[in-house]
Simulated assay, not measured.
Amino acid sequence: MKRSDSTLKAILDVILHDNPATQDEIAEKLGLTRRYVTKLLQPMVKRGVVRRAYILDLKKFDEFSEMFDEEKTSREYAGAYLIKDMLKNMVGHVFKQFDMSFESFVNYNDEMANKALEMDYISNNMHEKIRSSVDTVISINPYSEFSKTMVFSEVAYDLERIADHTCHIANFVLNGCYEVDAEMLEILNSMYLTSRKMVKYSMEGFLNEELDLKDKVMDYEEKIHALQKKALNQIAIQMAEDDVLDKDRSTYYLTLSRVVKAFERIGDISVEIIDAAGEFYRNIPRSTTPERFRRRSSD
């Protein structure tokens, strides 16, 4: 991508979710000169792609948006393209938060745990940014097929929920619990790797229309719940051998159970994301029953 195209994309991103009233606002936001903003926007304004003051005509912009991504399919409107880009950034950040949380758990490191929790504020802000962008897009053309963009807001919320669940992992360290033994750590490491793969494949399926990845997500879903049972059985065995009346030990088992539950919920949310992809691209209706209840009814 040429530098001018990259800058134009940044300008359009500001227009999409910040609703600037003047080019001065756009220039100040991006650290550009007003003259350069005018130069890049002028062709878009003349052709009606950008309307004063300043919003995108998404249908017209779709004719030009292929300059940003040669692999963009013709069915994607410009707003979808820009919001998908924001989702890619958000999932990258959530992965970093997830990794930092588990690393703090493995190393029993307070500093890492606090950093992971601080990253959650950014995850929340990224969700809000995507939600407001979706609202803007729908307000421009609420009756078009593009109103399906609401799904983007749902997926961003799902990513925020995943980030929230990783906080339980970091909080284990900050609650002053004992370090876990090697056998339990091995089970939890498998849960971490499995749930992380579920997030990865579900988001790839949603962002790239790779719906065949649902098979992988569901295979890992079975694995994550088998691991959950194994972890809870291990906790039950340890509790039977321990003095659970001791307050510190009681807190340990309670907080450790939340860590196990966090991995399980991250897996369930991943299933919800890949189901959302099926509805978005293929109009495959999603079940109104949450995944964890569907699973229980089939057991």
Score class of each variant (00 low, 15 high):
L16D: 01
L16P: 07
D18L: 01
D18A: 03
D18R: 07
D18C: 01
D18H: 01
N19Y: 07
N19Q: 08
N19F: 04
P20V: 02
P20A: 00
P20I: 05
A21W: 03
Q23Y: 08
D24N: 13
A27G: 06
E28F: 00
E28T: 11
K29G: 06
K29R: 15
K29I: 00
L30F: 02
G31M: 02
G31V: 09
L32Q: 10
L32I: 03
T33V: 08
T33Q: 13
T33R: 05
T33A: 09
R34A: 08
Y36D: 01
Y36H: 15
Y36W: 10
V37D: 01
T38R: 04
T38I: 01
T38H: 09
T38A: 09
K39I: 10
L40C: 07
L40R: 00
L40F: 11
L40A: 06
L41W: 14
Q42M: 07
Q42L: 08
M44Q: 15
V45R: 15
R47I: 06
R47G: 13
R47S: 11
G48E: 11
G48S: 06
G48V: 09
V50K: 09
V50F: 10
V50Q: 01
V50E: 05
R51P: 04
R51H: 13
R51L: 15
R51I: 15
R52L: 09
Y54L: 04
Y54T: 08
L56W: 13
D57E: 08
D57C: 10
D57V: 11
L58H: 11
L58I: 14
L58V: 12
K59F: 15
K59H: 13
F61L: 08
D62L: 10
D62V: 04
D62E: 15
E63P: 03
E63H: 08
E63M: 07
F64K: 08
F64R: 09
S65R: 12
S65M: 05
E66F: 06
D69K: 00
E70N: 02
E70Q: 13
E70P: 14
E71S: 11
E71V: 04
E71Y: 15
K72P: 07
S74Q: 12
S74D: 09
R75A: 15
R75E: 08
E76R: 13
A78E: 05
G79Y: 00
A80F: 15
L82A: 03
I83S: 00
I83Q: 01
I83C: 05
I83D: 02
K84C: 03
D85I: 00
D85K: 12
D85H: 14
D85V: 03
L87N: 09
L87D: 02
L87S: 06
K88E: 03
N89H: 09
M90D: 04
M90G: 02
V91K: 02
V91H: 03
G92R: 05
G92V: 04
G92N: 03
H93N: 12
H93E: 13
V94T: 14
V94R: 10
V94I: 15
V94P: 08
V94C: 00
V94Q: 00
V94E: 08
F95K: 13
F95A: 01
K96M: 14
D99K: 09
D99M: 07
D99T: 10
M100E: 14
S101N: 12
S101T: 11
F102V: 06
E103A: 14
E103K: 05
F105C: 06
V106H: 10
N107C: 09
D110T: 14
D110R: 12
E111D: 10
M112Q: 09
